[in-house]
Each structure stands twice: as structure tokens, then as C-alpha cells.
Nucleic acid binder design. Structure first.
Lengths: 196, 196
DNA sequence: ATTGAAAGAATATATAT
DNA sequence: ATATATATTCTTTCAAT
């Protein structure tokens, strides 16, 4: 199990601040060569820590309206469907599905008309109740702190330490707390796949 | 007031998918030259539509624990402070402050112990009540849809159309629905600044 | 917005620590 | 295993149109 050293943290932090920063610039700041940065970034992507490079779009400029947080209390078993269908809406920026059958959306809706957004994208028969609140302010963390690389075991959910293992299945990387969890997971994964 | 054409939309969409994609690659896809892409991206940044280039970090791999949504019901007037102080916590990924004195956090906390996170970063005397819910699934929109560039007037809040105006104050760009709103805003801005 | 030239950055390979 | 130096390739930027 590869951990993260201080340099990895610095690289991550620098990329969080500006993902188009040249590797040579990063290299200089962390006292390494550009190829070394390239290798490390590749590794961070491989590890699944960097999920992608993206652009921070101010959606409030794109969609006339006010930013709101909508909390949807779904009927039993309907939350996943609601989360999936609502995320197709152009005005929806982020979707969280939580335990207890609730779905929280951050969206920008015209003159605080959230009901229309829901009516268009979800079956209101699936909804018990919903609540809309205007967002006054939102921000996202650009800091990482001294966080450790600490994935959860894909099989049992325990945290993975130095003795952990990893497997790559269909391009996705999975982490495990021990060899037996890894094997159990892989077996299950493959039998599921054979079934298809 | 400059609008967005289809090409701008495509560029934005391509950058959302991969912000490190070379401009030459984008150029090919939208049938333009690389320098043209560079100019347009610069304009999108100037407009404030692109707020920055960043990296999508899987924080659940960095912080041992489970992802949760924490809803904090703040005492009157304390929400802004809570939002500010809590966003310093390493485990907090996103903070929304909504009308009605509530703060919603997306965070990753060790063995669903959210109270510790709050206790460490906010004065619990400021809090009426809070609720923690495990996040089962979360995703963010990578699509833009056919959204129009539709900023709200910085002065009156109405939507800004073709006849709108824009001013740049201390490097920040502001949009207005009409000239008088722009003037009022600038006057107020400057008198506030003089006061300091 | 394009072209073409020049500067600059990323990667592959071989090599050294 | 991990970093480096160099060479090659690919990108971006700048000027002129």
C-alpha cells in the first residue's frame, strides 16, 4: 500500500489551487524535476485520489435564478431513482443522497421556483415532502490539511493501513484491509460479472 | 453585454470533463484554431464564468471515516461565523449557508463522529441543534445543458439581458441590468471604500 | 479568427542514486 | 524503487494578416 508523502500533499494542494499550473512550476516549488511531478501526478490519478481535472464554473451566472438547497424526503426505496433523475437537470449542480431516503440538491432555480424543477424531473408520487432554502453563501475547501491517505476496505469497510492490499478491476482501483478481503471481493466481483 | 455562443458552451463542457485537455484538442473538436480557444478561455475567465481550474480530489480516500451531511441550526446571527470557522476543518469539503440561519456541511468524519468535528471548530453555544446523515452517494453535474449566460444585477437582483452593463471593480467583474444600477452600485462601492 | 514561427512544457528513454 | 538528464514531441503564445 503506497502512502502519501509530504511532496504528494504539496502537489495536490498546488493542483487544487490551479490545475493548469505547469509541472515545471510545481517541480520548482517542491524541489523536484518536472518528470518526477508527472510521475507522481500519474500515481495520484491511479490511486483514485485525483478523480479528474476540472473547471470551477460559476453556475449562478449561467442559470437565471437564485441558488437553493432542496431537501427531498423520498418514499421508501425511491431515493436512488430521484437522485439519478434529478441530476440530469441543467440547473442542478450537486446531488447528495443520504441514508434515510433523503436527497439533497444544490441548484439554481428561477425566482425560487423549486417545485417546477422537481415536477419536471422526478415523479412527485415518490416524494413525501420537500424543503427549499435559499443559499446565502457557499464555498468549497481548497485546503487539504495534513490528511492521510486512508481508504476504507472495499469489502469490509474497515480502514486500510500499511499492510493493506489493492486490486485493479476493470480499470477501477480498490483497496482492502487484508488479503482475504481482497480475495473475497474479487471472487464476488468475478462471479457477478460471469452472471451477466 | 457579451453573451455565450454555442462554441463557448462546448469549450466549457470540454473543460468540465477534463481541464488539462490541450487547447489544440479543443480547437479540433470545435473547429477553431488553438489561439482562438486560448482567447475564448481568457474571456470566460474574465467574465467570471470560469472561476478557476482545479482538481477533483476524492476526499473520502484521504480522511478515514464516512462521508456525512451535517445540518447545523445556528442561533440568530451566528450562521456566518459558524460557516466560516467550520470551513477551516480539514475534513470539511463543502459548506452551504442558507437563509434561516442554517449551515449545511459535506464532510468526512471518523466513525460517524460529527460532534467532535463541530466541537473542535464551532462554539456549541451558537448552535441550537444539528443533524448528521450519512451520504450514500453524491455526484456533481458535469453537464451544462443549454444554459444561457444570465447573471443577476449586482445592484437590484433582476436578471441582466443584452442591454445590461458591466463594471470591473478591484479586479472583480460585476453585471448590471441598466446604467443607473451600475452607477448606484459604483457610487456606493466607492464611498464604502473611501470610508476605510 | 487564422497562419506560421518561436518559446515553452510534457513525456519517454536511458541512466544514476 | 525513485529521481534525473536529455531528447523528442506536443502545446501555447506572439506577431502579422
Amino acid at each position: 500500500m503506497p502512502g502519501l508523502d509530504d511532496t504528494d500533499h504539496e502537489i495536490l494542494q498546488l493542483l487544487l489551487e490551479d490545475a493548469r499550473r505547469p509541472y515545471s512550476d510545481i517541480a520548482e516549488r517542491v524541489d523536484l524535476s518536472a518528470p518526477a511531478i508527472s510521475d507522481r501526478v500519474d500515481r495520484l490519478v491511479e490511486m483514485g485520489l485525483i478523480q479528474g481535472f476540472t473547471v470551477d464554473v460559476d453556475r449562478s451566472l449561467l442559470q437565471a435564478g437564485v441558488p437553493v438547497l432542496i431537501e427531498v424526503d423520498a418514499k421508501p426505496g425511491r431515493a436512488a431513482d430521484i437522485a439519478a433523475s434529478v441530476s440530469d437537470a441543467d440547473s442542478v449542480e450537486r446531488v447528495y443522497r443520504t441514508a434515510g431516503g433523503r436527497v439533497m440538491l444544490a441548484a439554481t432555480v428561477p425566482q425560487s421556483d423549486a417545485s417546477e424543477l422537481l415536477a419536471e424531473h422526478v415523479d412527485l408520487g415518490d416524494v413525501n415532502r420537500y424543503e427549499v432554502r435559499m443559499i446565502a453563501d457557499s464555498e468549497w475547501a481548497v485546503g487539504l490539511g495534513g490528511a492521510e491517505f486512508a481508504p476504507d476496505c472495499a469489502e469490509c469497510g474497515n480502514s486500510v493501513d500499511e499492510e493493506g492490499e489493492q486490486r485493479t478491476l476493470d480499470g477501477e482501483r480498490y483497496y482492502f484491509c487484508c488479503g482475504s478481503c481482497a480475495e473475497r471481493f474479487v471472487d464476488q466481483y468475478e462471479s457477478l460479472k460471469d452472471g451477466v
